[in-house]
Design a protein around this nucleic acid. Structure first.
Lengths: 239, 239
DNA sequence: GTCATCATGTAAGCCGTTACATGATTGC
DNA sequence: GCAATCATGTAACGGCTTACATGATGAC
């Protein structure tokens, strides 16, 4: 869970722990409260497993952020503190390794055995751009089926037993929420299927491994059928 | 959490563990998956703490229909299962003690220090009938405030950063859901405040401690302010 | 000069999930 | 006779929260 979130954020750009936490909290609404006691150990684990490489940021580097808007701020900061290395206690900037990309692809494509459902789905959807179209579609449809199950349960619950006004309101509101979630998913699925839309098999989609530019192109799998590539591309093999 | 759920269900009627699980899963939608490894230890804890009293259910009770003519059938049943006790492995039926009622009232009125928010609120609302009107109102308003906070965060998140279509859809849909939750709460709060409505100070509300008497709900209204009620009413003093 | 924020980490403990063990009853 | 459901538990493991420790920087 935590691991997937970290890898997903780092897929886009390198970051230090504190910022990962901020992004998780503010940018995506998921993980309202990411505690340090959970974040840093996770980073350590990932580093040990070879998924991440950490570099001590002495702050003199300034590795040109892509976002143009940040460049100004960055320059201002550097101007104000010319000495370099005036680092607010050496940050560790984490970068995804190839191994990390492999792990991310697998984690993302794997459905959680027995789901913590909502958060897990939210996280996967947030990184859905890294999934191939079919896997994306499957993600959405699995979720839809899940919700329909729960909707049935909620409906029968609301109908069956005599609940007091509060419990009843709770159950009914929950059922309505689920219904709306299903409609939302329907729209996403439709968009995904629309020709020329997001899900068009011919259209481009962001692939792990092809983002950094470190990998030339699709031929990253040229060495033959490697497990990673298949895991993502044909993720449907999962039981 | 688990504790509150158990006490709340047992407030209404005695039950064995397996059924508590069923009710939690099916009746209220909360706790989709209550695992035994979590349920039974919780029951043990509560029993040790004196909140629950357990009786081995031999099942010989079987409130017999009084007609003497049925005795024959009954005898036949007993003949088929000679032990009498058709006990599918002696169930332990749990019953709330006075101490348990006290604990329940406190747990219910206490707001979780730093919330697991949604589930916690759902649980408390499901048992809101056991809260005095002011506490109920406070519960709803705290939740509303919480949601407004999160809504602000979500909105600023959606506006601020450039997210891809999936992440954006996720964040926007989350924000809409929160908005609807707020509206729902508004309706509940309104109903709570409406004179003669649920929240009217003079109207009846279910009190812990006055339910077990096998009295029908309607007659609760006639009961005057009793000490139990006061214990709950002043529950707001809890730090 | 002190408080809030940025930044990283460790240690203890709770709590919950998973898996295992047991055993009776019902239905096919 | 065999599977599914009912029913209660124990043990291991893992992850997350809480609290603690440290320390620099910037604002008031």
């Amino acid at each position: 869970m935590m691991e997937l979130a970290i890898l997903g954020l780092l897929e886009e750009q390198e970051m230090h722990g504190y910022e990962i936490r901020r992004r998780l909290r503010d940018e995506l609404g998921l993980f309202a409260n990411v505690s340090f006691g959970s974040l840093y150990p996770a980073l350590s684990r990932l580093e040990r497993s070879g998924a991440l490489a950490a570099v001590e940021d002495d702050r003199h580097v300034a590795p040109v952020p892509m976002t143009g808007s940040l460049t100004g701020e960055w320059a201002a900061l550097r101007a104000r503190r010319p000495v370099g290395t005036r680092g607010r206690r050496g940050r560790k900037v984490y970068r995804l390794t190839d191994e990390g990309r492999r792990q991310f692809a697998i984690l993302l494509a794997t459905e959680p055995p027995t789901g913590d459902d909502t958060r897990s789905f939210g996280l996967r959807l947030a990184f859905a751009r890294y999934l191939p179209p079919q896997a994306r579609l499957r993600l959405l449809e699995r979720r839809r089926a899940q919700l329909l199950d729960r909707l049935g349960a909620a409906r029968s619950a609301a109908g069956g037993v005599r609940l007091d006004r509060y419990a009843r309101s709770l159950v009914e509101h929950a059922a309505e929420s689920i219904e709306r979630d299903v409609h939302w998913l329907d729209r996403l699925i439709e968009a995904e299927r629309a020709p020329g839309g997001a899900g068009d098999p011919g259209s481009a989609w962001s692939r792990p491994g092809s983002i950094t530019g470190a990998m030339p192109d699709d031929r990253l799998a040229s060495a033959g059928p490697d497990p990673t590539a298949r895991a993502v591309t044909t993720g449907g093999d999962i039981p």
